[in-house]
Amino acid sequence: MTGRVRVTVRFPGLVAQATGVSHARVEAGTLREAIDAALASAPALRHHLCEDDGRFRVHVLCFHNGTNTRLLAALDVPLGEGDEITFAQAISGG
């Protein structure tokens, strides 16, 4: 699939509470573009989810259509209509 599509990027409740953003509807051609556009919707999102060098924090999980993006060689993956991008945070509390 090529071209730009509209996708929804969802953030976990803890991040939503801290940033006021629970999800972002963005138009993008690749996974990386979608994530960048979504993180740009509120400056605090990047702080909560990414290290200074741009990588996701270790406890942050990002799933693209159910695939853990940590296992992808790169985020330059073409998006398709209806793709799902969901962030989660591994939780240490118990």
Binding site: R57, V58, H59, L61, A90, I91, S92
Partner: peptide, 13 residues
């Protein structure tokens, strides 16, 4: 799932 151990204090508790 995680790859490595998150730094202490990096996630909410």
């Amino acid at each position: 799932l995680l790859g490595g151990v998150p730094s202490p204090g990096s996630s909410p508790t």
